[in-house]
């Protein structure tokens, strides 16, 4: 049996409300809230980035896994905001966790799907018996261009998952990937903000891939929507995942625990993994969970998990996503937000 032996998340304490961003650009905040189903989003502190978020999420995963860090044979981080263009995030994280030097490291990038990519590969290596444990992390401090619709959602946070064969919290029943070349959203080397195709990011991109992967894994596994206790779909905004879930036959209650986007925003590579982490926080032994990510460019990874008895033992060994999202929030105004996100031109 291969699955997750430990999971953990991290969310920075800083927030900005939709109203604050809307006010800055003279937009109607109620229309944004209604249209995108967003309330606020997380913002990384001045001293936080994909690497620091990954370290904290991974520490929480280790607390639940109750294994020695050096037993982890691979560490993969999926992000579209790796702090270095050249030099891995993973080496810093592995060094901080004490996993080095006998470890395989790679950074992944696939827009918002890089986190589940890291999970997919970590799982595969363990399943192939190449490694005892492997960690996959999805983390981001994503940026939307000032004034762009993405600015309301692009947020910060991440989740880490340790895969192994014993002491499993959630078994992996099946996986499926669905990928085409679809230029719906991109950021060129050296560009600070991404560009996107507006409504083109919807039907031909998000929905085609999420539904494609979702339908395929259901068919492959033989399960139907009603067999699942929970489902998580990538959350670029509040609306898309609910629409996609409905089309696949899921009810809102099945999606509710993992639908963290109204308070968290779209944490890109950390989005659906953190929704999954939040779902594990409330799941019961025996529950089936469907996770479908989406990354522009474009593709979706789908996973079916079955929760084990061990969930009840480990759940409280680290902070939950709900606690991370709802406790000790520090709200920023737009000026502070602009400073925190490096949007102000400073002298060297």
């Amino acid at each position: 049996m291969v699955g997750i032996v430990g999971y953990g998340s991290y969310v920075p304490r800083y927030r900005i409300k939709v109203e604050e961003i809307a006010h800055q650009w003279g937009k109607d905040s109620s229309a944004v809230k209604r249209g995108l189903l967003l309330q606020e989003k997380t913002v990384p502190g001045l001293d936080e980035d994909t690497i620091t978020i990954s370290v904290e999420a991974a520490k929480n995963a280790l607390k639940r896994a109750e294994i020695a860090p050096e037993e982890i044979g691979a560490l993969y981080i999926g992000s579209e905001s790796h702090p270095y263009a050249v030099k891995p995030s993973g080496t810093v994280v592995a060094e901080a966790l004490g996993i080095v030097p006998n470890v395989h490291i790679a950074d992944y990038e696939f827009a918002c799907k890089a986190g589940t990519e890291a999970m997919f590969v970590a799982h595969g290596l363990v399943k192939a018996d190449l490694l005892k444990y492997a960690m996959g992390i999805g983390a981001d401090t994503s940026q939307g261009a000032p004034g762009d619709a993405l600015e309301f959602s692009a947020s910060a946070g991440g989740s880490a998952f340790i895969f192994g064969k014993g002491n499993i919290v959630a078994e992996i029943i099946d996986t499926f990937s669905y990928t085409t070349d679809t230029p719906d959203f991109w950021r060129r080397e050296g560009a600070f903000y991404p560009l996107h195709g507006g409504r083109f990011t919807g039907e031909p991109a998000y929905f085609k891939h999420v539904l494609g992967a979702g339908r395929a894994i259901l068919e492959k596994s033989g399960y139907k929507a009603s067999d699942f206790a929970y489902a998580i779909f990538h959350m670029p905004n509040g609306k898309f995942p609910l629409t996609a879930g409905k089309k696949l036959g899921f009810r809102k209650e099945q999606m509710e625990p993992g639908w963290i986007v109204p308070l968290m925003g779209n944490t890109y590579s950390g989005s659906s993994p953190t929704g999954f982490s939040a779902t594990l926080d409330v799941a019961k032994p025996g529950d089936l969970i469907l996770l479908v990510s989406f990354g522009s460019g474009a593709g979706s990874d789908a996973f079916i998990f079955k929760v084990t008895e061990r969930i009840n033992e480990v759940r409280n060994k680290a902070i939950t996503v709900k606690e991370l999202l709802e406790q000790n929030r520090i709200y920023l105004d737009y000026g502070q937000y602009a400073k925190y996100r490096g949007k102000i031109i400073m002298n060297e």
């Binding site: 502190g45 001045l46 001293d47 936080e48 980035d49 690497i51 620091t52 370290v55 904290e56 520490k59 702090p83 270095y84 810093v92 901080a96 060297e348």
Partner: peptide, 20 residues
């Protein structure tokens, strides 16, 4: 103690991490 970025060496230099 948490793991954070201490400072960056300008736009092109290394990023210094550590405890806070």
């Amino acid at each position: 103690f948490v793991f954070r970025k201490l400072y960056e060496e300008g736009h092109c230099g290394i990023i210094n991490y550590g405890y806070k």
